[in-house]
C-alpha cells in the first residue's frame, strides 16, 4: 500500500466532479455579485436622498441582511418560507436570490458611504452650474466616489465567493458537497483523503479569490499615490 493519498483526486471522475462543483459555486457567486452590485448602487443612491420613510425602509433592509447570518437566511428562504407561502424554488435559485439580496444590502452601504464622502462644495458647485439631481449623481458624485468604493466592493466579492461553501446546507451540489462525497466514499482506501480533497478545494478557492485581493491592493496603492503624490 505505497500509494499516496493524492491519487484520490484522479480516481474515476473525481476531478471533473470537483471542478463541476466549483463551477456551480462560481456561477452562483458571479450572478449574485453582478445583480447585487447593480441593485446595491441604486439602493445606495436612494439612501442618500432626504426622504425619511425611504431611508427607514432601506435601513431596515440593510440591517436585516447584515445581522441575520447567511446560513439562517438560506434556511429561511429554502425551508421555512415555502412552508408558509407555498412557493417552491429550487436550491440554486434560492441561493442566487439570497446572495443577491445580501450583496445588494452590503453594497448599498458601501455606495452610500462613498457618496457622502464627496466634499459638500462639489455638490454645491454642481448645483450652481444648474445640474439636475440625476446629472449631479452621474457627473459629480459617482465619478468621485467610485474609487473609494472599489476596494470595499472587491472585499465583499471575495466574502461572497467564500460563503458559497455554506450552500451544501440547502442541498446545492457545490464544491464542498462534492468533496465530502468523495472523502466519505473513499475513507476505506484513502484514510487521509480529507487532507487532499480539502487541500485541493483550498487551492481552487485561492485561485478564485487571490487575483481579486491583489487587484484590491493595487487599486488602493494607486489611490494612495494619487492622493499623496
Amino acid at each position: 500500500m505505497a500509494h499516496s493519498g493524492i491519487n484520490i483526486l484522479f480516481e474515476g471522475r473525481n476531478l471533473t466532479r470537483l471542478l463541476g462543483g466549483l463551477w456551480i459555486s462560481a456561477k452562483i457567486a458571479f450572478i449574485a455579485i453582478v445583480l447585487g452590485i447593480l441593485l446595491g448602487i441604486i439602493l445606495g443612491m436612494l439612501r442618500t436622498l432626504k426622504n425619511p420613510l425611504l431611508r427607514v425602509i432601506l435601513r431596515l433592509y440593510l440591517e436585516f441582511f447584515r445581522i441575520v447570518p447567511t446560513v439562517v437566511l438560506l434556511f429561511l428562504f429554502y425551508y421555512i418560507l415555502p412552508q408558509n407561502f407555498h412557493i417552491n424554488l429550487n436550491a440554486e435559485v434560492v441561493a442566487t436570490l439570497v446572495f443577491t439580496l445580501w450583496v445588494a444590502a452590503e453594497m448599498s452601504d458601501i455606495v452610500r458611504s462613498g457618496l457622502i464622502s464627496v466634499p459638500r462644495h462639489q455638490v454645491d458647485a454642481g448645483k450652481a452650474i444648474g445640474l439636475t439631481t440625476p446629472q449631479l449623481y452621474r457627473y459629480v458624485l459617482l465619478p468621485q466616489s467610485i474609487q473609494l468604493m472599489i476596494p470595499a466592493t472587491i472585499n465583499l466579492t471575495t466574502r461572497v465567493i467564500k460563503t458559497t461553501s455554506l450552500l451544501l446546507l440547502i442541498s446545492v451540489m457545490d464544491v464542498i458537497n462534492v468533496g465530502q462525497q468523495i472523502i466519505e466514499a473513499n475513507n476505506q482506501h484513502y484514510q487521509n483523503g480529507a487532507f487532499w480533497i480539502y487541500g485541493f478545494i483550498f487551492i481552487l478557492y485561492f485561485i478564485l479569490c487571490y487575483p481579486l485581493s491583489v487587484w484590491a491592493r493595487y487599486i488602493e496603492r494607486k489611490e494612495k499615490l494619487r492622493n499623496n503624490g
Partner: peptide
C-alpha cells in the same frame, strides 16, 4: 451523499 454503504456517490 456521504454515508457508505447506505447512501453515497461512487468515483
Amino acid at each position: 451523499g456521504d454515508l457508505p454503504p447506505y447512501g453515497w456517490v461512487n468515483k
